[in-house]
Structures are given as structure tokens and as C-alpha cells.
Simulated scan of single mutants.
Amino acid sequence: MSEKMRVAMVGVGGFGGARRNTMRETGLFEIVSAYDINPQALAHAEEVDGARAVGSYEELLEVPGIEAMVISTGGKFHTEQALAAMERGLHVFVEKPLCATREEALALLEMQRKTERVVVVGHFDHHSDVGATEIKRLIAAGELGTVATFQMETAHSGGLEIKPGDWRGDPEKNPGGMLFQCGCHALHELMFLFGPIVRVSSMMRYDVHTTLTADVAHCLLEFESGLIGTLGAYHVTPYRHSLNIFGTKKSLYRDLRCPAYGDSSYVALQERRRGEAELHVPYPLPSGIDHCGAVRNFYRAVREGVEPYPSLLDGARAVMVVFAAEEAAKTGKTVTIDWEL
């Protein structure tokens, strides 16, 4: 059995609780110590995971014998906490969205280069997603023909529950609204499938709910390959995560139903048949994704030296597209993304 990695963790309630579940499931981690502003969450981490509670993040950084820091706090804290951890010589696992400004992304990348620490960002591990890897294979094998364009949508109604004072309603801490919170997952997936995004145009709507962040975002994305397509992100509507890819031979339709409701992923292909009915034919594909994939990769990157995935650069690229989209929406101009990271 692999020797467990001794880690400290900041943010152990809410999504941090879910992250603790994935770490526990792998059997690869020992949460030695933890800090959270919520005493109930901290007590639960101590009871379930044996994590010794401390009274501040500064104290957490001083815990002896730890190899890494797991950061499952709100996005507004990520940069400061990750920089401090790397400076202390710790490897870092940090949730998405990575950070709220381009300057923060550059500071994180510079610190990683300086310290040579492993940093993994908590996006989905698409290499363990059977659906995403099979779609990537179909594209690479030319089975769809030339991919002409795509449409992607990601949505849920959580934005309607944002209360005054919540960081998700603050445009400085949550730029782009849903595009920042969950759209960064979609952007990470799109770049896994199609490569780097180089130009962005967008429009955003702010008047559906009472927050100051975008309720609806529509983006036109141009890739380095010349591919263009659209991404829609909304946090004021029922759940949806879908991807339609339109090829010269076949089109592909993927609908990820919410696992909370017991539905699985649906994939169908539609073949071009001139003069005949062009029906949607279900494509048998195992559903699901290894939700432990990112933390497994973190362990392997630290212990075995494998390439980190999703890497700090992957996380930075996703939020850089969000920043470009918000700029495009505000200025009404297409924004070229500066990839000098």
C-alpha cells in the first residue's frame, strides 16, 4: 500500500467536506491538521479524519511534518493562501476557480517557477472522464469529419440563492458570475478537447437577479486551430450541462444529467445522409467521471513525478478566458488573449 501523504487543509466545510471525502476514498492522504472559520466543520474534520484543529491559517503553515497544503476556501482567498504555502516549501492542491485577476494568476505562476512546487487545481480530471476521452478520440480519428463548430451550455439555479454579502455576488471576487464559478470547468473541458482559445467575444446580462455579478453569459470563442463555437453560462436557471459538436460527417450531442437526480450522461451521433432521415442514434458510452482523479494525480505528481493535471497553468488558462470574456462584454470588442504566462 502506498505511503500516505501528510497534508494540512484550510476550508474543511461545504465543498471542503466533499474534497475530504475524495481524499479519504483514495486512501492516499492523512489530513494532519486543519483550519476553518466554521467551528462545526472543524470539529467534524477532527472527528472523521483525525485532523487536529488550529486557530489560524498562519498556525496551519507552521504544522511540522506536512508535505502539502489543500486549499478548499472561497476563490477570493486562493492566491494569498497558495503563495504562502509555496513560500513555505509546500506542494499545493487548490480548488477552482484559481484566482480573480490576471495579476494573481501571474503571481502564482511566478511563485511556482521560483519554488518548483507541485500545484494541482481542482478542475475535473478529463483523462479519467470516459465520455470526454472518447469524444476527444472521435475528433482526433476524424470520425466526425472536420469539426465546424460547437455549442456548450452550463447552468444551474444557485445564483438565485445568493444573499447580500456573499462573495459570489461581488464582481471583484466573482468576475463573470456563473462563467467564473462553473464556466471555468466548461472552458477547461473545451481546451482539453480543442486546444487553446485565442480570441473571445461576449455579452452578459446582469438584471435577472439582484446581485452585481453576471446572471447570464454568452461567449463566442475562437481557438488556435481556427475553430469557433459558443459557450453559454447561467446561474439562474435549472441544471444543464450539454455539448453539441457539429462535424462535416457526423454531429455529436452530449447531455450530462445531474447525478443528484439519478440521471446519467446521454450521447448521440447524427450522421450526414443526403436524401435520408438524419436521425440521432444513441452512442453507448459509460457515464461518470472519477471525482477523485485530481487528488490522485496530485499524489502521483508529488510522489512519482508524473505531470500534474489539472495543472496550475490549466487553472490559469481557464480563468484568463473568463477575464477576457468579461472585458469583451464591457467594451463590446473582441479580446485577444495574451498567453504570455
Rank of each mutant, 00 (worst) to 15 (best):
H123A: 01
F124S: 09
F124E: 13
H127T: 13
G131W: 01
E134F: 06
E134N: 11
I135V: 14
R137W: 05
I139N: 04
A140I: 03
A140E: 15
A140N: 11
A141D: 14
G142C: 01
G142D: 05
L144Y: 00
T146Y: 00
V147R: 00
F150M: 03
M152C: 15
T154E: 14
T154W: 02
A155I: 02
A155S: 13
H156A: 05
G158P: 09
G158T: 09
G159I: 10
E161Y: 02
I162G: 07
K163F: 12
D166T: 00
W167P: 15
P171D: 05
E172A: 10
N174M: 15
P175L: 11
G176W: 03
G177P: 14
M178S: 13
M178A: 15
Q181I: 15
G183M: 10
G183A: 11
H185C: 14
L187M: 12
E189T: 03
L190Y: 01
F192P: 11
F192M: 08
F192L: 09
L193R: 09
G195E: 08
I197G: 13
R199E: 15
V200G: 08
M203C: 08
M204N: 11
D207S: 14
D207R: 02
H209K: 11
T210M: 11
D215H: 12
V216H: 03
A217W: 01
A217F: 06
A217C: 12
H218Y: 05
C219S: 04
L221T: 03
E222A: 04
S225H: 14
